[in-house]
């Protein structure tokens, strides 16, 4: 190992924080957090990826800030403090998007602002950052943001491919020659309801593989 001195930074426990959200502890399919703003941005891959990145950054950074401040925040007003930290981060992200990626920012419309009320961020702050040191909190934020992003990307991949026949705007279906065989784009996939159903199917697939996630009545 070349980075021996950094080893404790990526100890087994921290790595688990990073990888857990991809599978058994996924914020969307298992913790049921952050569905609010997730689904509406999944019509196309590009805005979905921008959204995933924004959420990851906001989660990680506000996790660090709250973890650093955790001993100074009075319990009674912690929600307000958390909201202020999150809102500041979101304002930064929003202004950056407007400056450097205006078209995507327009597509995302109000959903950038809605990162503030994304339950993933609040949920992680409450459940993790308030009780842990900044570094593990940072990893936890990255992991959860990425786990959220993973679902967003899977959903938007299927919706863009089946709904518009493209991937990142590249006309895959046309190049493959699917249209000449009588294939049609499924316009239904672009509409909001299908996002819900696709996520439902992802949950079904995941829980069929991992029986321990099945809900008991």
């Amino acid at each position: 190992m070349s980075n021996q001195e950094k080893e404790p930074w990526f100890s087994a426990k921290n790595l688990k924080l990073l990888t857990g959200p991809f599978g058994t502890n996924n914020p969307i399919t298992v913790q049921v957090l952050g569905i609010c703003s997730a689904l509406a941005v999944t019509v196309k891959l590009k805005p979905a990826i921008v959204m995933a990145l924004s959420v990851t950054i906001v989660t990680a950074v506000s996790n660090v800030v709250i973890a650093a401040l955790r001993q100074y925040i009075p319990d009674r007003i912690r929600i307000i403090v958390q909201l202020v930290v999150i809102a500041t981060m979101v304002i930064l992200v929003d202004q950056l998007l407007k400056a450097y990626a205006f078209d995507v920012s327009k597509q995302l419309s109000v959903f950038v602002g809605l990162i503030i009320t994304n339950c993933i961020i609040m949920g992680r702050l409450e459940a993790f950052a308030m009780a842990n040191k900044p570094w593990p909190s940072f990893i936890d934020g990255l992991g959860n943001g990425a786990g959220y992003g993973l679902i967003l990307i899977i959903v938007s991949f299927f919706r863009e491919l089946l709904g518009s026949g493209t991937i990142f705007g590249y006309p895959v279906m046309e190049k493959v020659g699917a249209y000449s065989t009588g294939y049609e784009n499924n316009g239904m996939m672009i509409l909001p309801p299908m996002a819900l159903i696709v996520v439902g199917l992802i949950i079904w697939a995941q829980r069929s593989r991992d029986k321990s996630l099945i809900e008991k009545k």
Binding site: P193, L196, I197, G200, L213
Partner: peptide
Amino acid sequence: PDPLKGLGITFILTGL
């Protein structure tokens, strides 16, 4: 079906 119980079926219902 067991894996659909709770969250999964609620999503699909909401979609419908």
